[in-house]
Design a protein around this nucleic acid. Structure first.
Lengths: 377, 377
DNA sequence: CTACTTTTTTCGATCCTCGAAAAAAAGAGG
DNA sequence: CCTCTTTTTTTCGAGGATCGAAAAAAGTAG
C-alpha cells in the first residue's frame, strides 16, 4: 500500500517496536500451518492508549470504551433528560458516566488518549463546541474543553452523520468506494458525505446540513425556524404532523407517542390514507434534495440509516420518481441504495475509528518525522 | 514554498536548464541595481510549447493562442451559427479557425501542446466529449478526439464556469482564498466552485450544475426539460419570460432581441413593474440556491460574472433576503460578494492556466521522476 | 582598485530507500 | 532426528535526495 520495499518496512516497524508504543507483535499464532518462515504479525498495541466514544442523543448518553487495538472493553447507556439540563449539568452528566466507566476498568486500561463525540446538531469547526443541537436547548456548550480538563484527553465533537459515513467507509470500502452519501432518517434528517475519499464537511463548521436544505420555499415550518426544509417534511415529527393533519405553519409536536414511527408505518402499510401520503411527501422532499445534490456532482451510492430507514419502502417510490426527472435528457441512475437501520452501532464504530486514527496521527515523535518529510494528512 | 533548501533548488533548476525545455534564464535584467550578486531570474521557456484556449459560445468560436510563458500571441473571434451545424460541421469549424491562427504564426511558435476548451454544458468526466450543450443541438460531440487527431495536441473540454473559477483563483488568491464560488449569469446560470483549494467537480461528469438545481418543485419549465430549476427563473430567457408574462409551463423563447438584457434592466430601474419583479424572482431563486449550498458547507466568498452581473443591483435585495433566513438562529454572513461582468476574459485566462498547468505536469521525464517519488498531483 | 554585500554554487555528511544476499523459521520427507 | 525445501525477514552495501557550511561569484559603494 505504501509502495515501500520489504526491507524499508522492516526498518520502520522495528523502530516502532523499539519505542514499544503503537505497534506490538501479535500473539495470535493462527499461522495456518503453511510452509516456510511464518510471517510476523503486527497489531496495534492495545496498551498504547484508550479511546472513548460518546453518543449524545435526546435523553440518552451512550459511552463506549475501547483500547488502541479497537477492542471494546466497556459500554454503558444512561437515560437522562438532556433537554432539561443546563449546559454545565449536561457536561457534568457526561463526565460522571465516563468517569464511572473508567474507574471500573482500573489500571487494566491504557490512559485515555482521545474522546470522540457524535451528536445531532451543529458543531464549530474545531469540533470543540456544540453550537446548536436538538439534544439540548442550550447553545455554545463547550463540551470539548470541559472533557479535556476532566480527563486530559483531547476531544472531537462531530455530527453523528459524519460518524456514520466514517463507519461505512471502514466497513465496506469496496461497496461504497470513494464517493457515497449516508442519509440518517430520525427526528432530524442528516447526511454524511464522502467525496474523493474524504469526508466532506463544512469550510468552517462541521456538518452537511442536508435536512435543512430548502425543499419548498415558504413551505412548512421547520424545527430550525426556517420554512420548507427537507426535515420539515421528512423528519419523524414532520411525518407525524402531515399524517395527523397538523398545522404546517406551527412547529411540529415534540410529544409523540413512544412508538410513533411504528404506528405510522402500520397504518400507512394498511390503507392508502393520510399516513401513506405523509411518507410519500417525505420521500418527495428527500428525493428532490438528493436530485439537487446529484445535479451538483454525479450520482453516488446511497445508504439510508436510522429508525426512519425501516419505512424506506413507503418512501422509495417518490424518492425514485424525484430522481428520475432528468436534466437535458441525461439519465440519473443511482447504482447502490442500501438500508442500514442500526445507526447507533454505526456511530459507535465510526466514532471509534476517528478516535483511533487521531491517535495514529499524534503518535509521539511523529511531529518531527512529519516536519522533515512534509507528509500529507 | 516547496520547503527545499537553496542548494537543492540549484541542483534541480540546473538539471531543468540543461534539458533546455521548461525553464529558461530570463533576460529581463531589471535587477533594480541592488548591492550584492544579482539573483538569477528564471522564467517559463516560451519555446517549450504553445497552448490554445477555445471558447465555444452560442454562435461564437473564440480562439486564443499563447506560448508557455503565458504571453498571448494571437486571438480571433468568429461568428458561426453553431446551433445549425451538425456535430461534424461544428468540429470542422473549430479546426479551421485554429488552423488558420496557427498557420499565421508560422514557425515562430513552439509546437501546440495543449488545447483547453470552455463551453456551457455538460462534458464527460474525461473532458473529451460534449454530452449536452445549448451551444449545439447535438449531443455526444467528440470534439476532443477530433482536435487531437488534427493537431496532435491533447485536449481538455470543461464547463466555462470551471474556467472562470480557475481564473479567479489565479488572479486573486488572497481575496478568494481556498474556498469560493463564481456564479455565471448569462442565458444559463452556471457555477464554478473551489473547495479546499481544489476545483470541485462532479465525480463522473465535469460541472457543478447549480443552475439546474431545483428551486420550486413542479415550478416553471426549464430549457433542460425539468421544472422549477433555478435557471428557469434566473436565466436571461427566463427573466424575459417572467417580465413579459409568458407561459411558465412552456419553454422560454430563444428569440430575444439583441439587447434584451439592457431593455429589461432599463425598464426595471425605471418603474416598479413586471421587469423589476422578474429580477426579484431571479434573485430569490439564486438566493435560495446559494442558501442551500451554504447549508451544506459554510458561506464562502461569491463572485458574480457574465452579462447578468450587470443587473446584480436589481437582484441583490432578494438574494440577501433569501440568505438572511437563518437555521437554528445561526447567522449566514457572506464576507465577500464581487461582481465581474467580463466573463469572456476570465474564461480565456482560466483556460490558459489550465492548459499551462497541464503542460507543467506532463513535462518530458516527469513520469519517471514521479514514479520514484510518488508525488501528488 | 578595493572592500563590502548578496546570491549562487560546491562539497561533504546524513538519511531514506532499494535490491541482492544472507539468515531465520517453519514444514516435508526420509 | 536430520536434511531439504519453502517462505519470510533481516542485513548490507549502494544510490540518490537533501541539507548546512563554506567557498565562489557577481555585482555596488566609495
Amino acid at each position: 500500500m505504501t509502495g515501500l520495499s520489504a526491507s524499508t518496512v522492516t526498518v520502520i516497524t522495528n523502530s516502532l517496536l523499539e519505542r514499544g508504543a503503537l505497534v506490538a507483535e501479535a500473539m495470535s499464532d493462527f499461522a495456518g500451518a503453511r510452509r516456510g518462515r511464518p510471517q510476523v504479525r503486527l497489531s496495534a498495541n492495545p496498551a498504547h492508549a484508550a479511546a472513548a466514544v460518546i453518543f449524545l442523543g435526546l435523553d440518552t448518553i451512550e459511552i463506549t470504551l475501547a483500547d488502541y487495538a479497537g477492542t471494546v472493553v466497556a459500554s454503558e447507556v444512561e437515560s437522562t433528560p438532556t433537554h432539561e439540563l443546563s449546559a454545565n449539568e449536561l457536561t457534568d452528566a457526561v463526565i460522571s458516566v465516563l468517569r464511572r466507566l473508567l474507574d471500573r476498568q482500573g489500571s487494566g486500561l491504557a490512559p485515555l488518549g482521545r474522546i470522540a463525540i457524535g451528536v445531532e446538531g451543529i458543531v464549530d469547526a474545531d469540533g470543540q463546541t456544540l453550537l446548536s443541537s436538538p439534544v439540548t436547548g442550550r447553545s455554545d456548550v463547550r463540551l470539548g474543553q470541559a472533557l479535556e480538563n476532566a480527563f486530559g484527553a483531547s476531544v472531537e465533537i462531530a455530527n453523528e452523520s459524519n460518524m456514520i459515513a466514517e463507519a461505512l467507509r471502514w466497513k465496506a470500502p469496496d461497496r461504497y468506494g470513494t464517493d457515497f452519501a449516508s442519509v440518517l432518517l430520525s427526528v432530524g434528517v442528516g447526511m454524511g458525505l464522502y467525496l474523493n475519499g474524504k469526508l466532506f464537511s463544512g469550510v468552517r463548521s462541521s456538518a452537511v446540513e442536508f435536512g435543512h436544505t430548502c425543499y419548498k420555499p415558504d413551505g412548512a415550518l421547520c424545527r430550525c425556524g426556517r420554512r420548507g426544509c427537507i426535515e420539515a417534511y421528512a423528519g419523524l415529527q414532520a411525518i407525524w404532523r402531515t399524517a395527523t393533519g397538523g398545522d404546517q405553519s406551527k412547529m411540529p409536536s415534540q410529544d409523540l407517542p413512544e412508538n410513533a414511527l411504528e404506528l405510522l408505518m402500520a397504518k400507512a402499510r394498511g390503507t392508502d390514507g393520510p399516513e401513506r401520503h405523509a411518507f410519500r411527501e417525505a420521500g418527495n422532499a428527500i428525493g428532490i434534495g438528493l436530485s439537487n445534490l446529484f445535479t451538483m456532482f454525479d450520482p453516488i451510492p446511497l445508504v439510508f440509516t436510522g429508525p426512519g430507514a425501516a419505512g424506506l419502502d413507503l418512501m422509495m417510490e417518490s424518492i425514485k420518481a424525484a430522481l428520475a426527472k432528468t436534466s437535458y435528457g441525461l439519465p440519473v441512475t443511482v447504482s447502490i441504495i442500501d438500508s442500514y437501520p442500526d445507526y447507533r452501532a454505526l456511530i459507535r464504530e465510526g466514532g471509534l475509528m476517528r478516535a483511533l486514527v487521531f491517535l495514529d496521527h499524534t503518535m509521539p515523535g511523529l511531529g518531527e518525522i512529519r516536519e522533515r518529510a512534509a507528509l500529507p494528512d
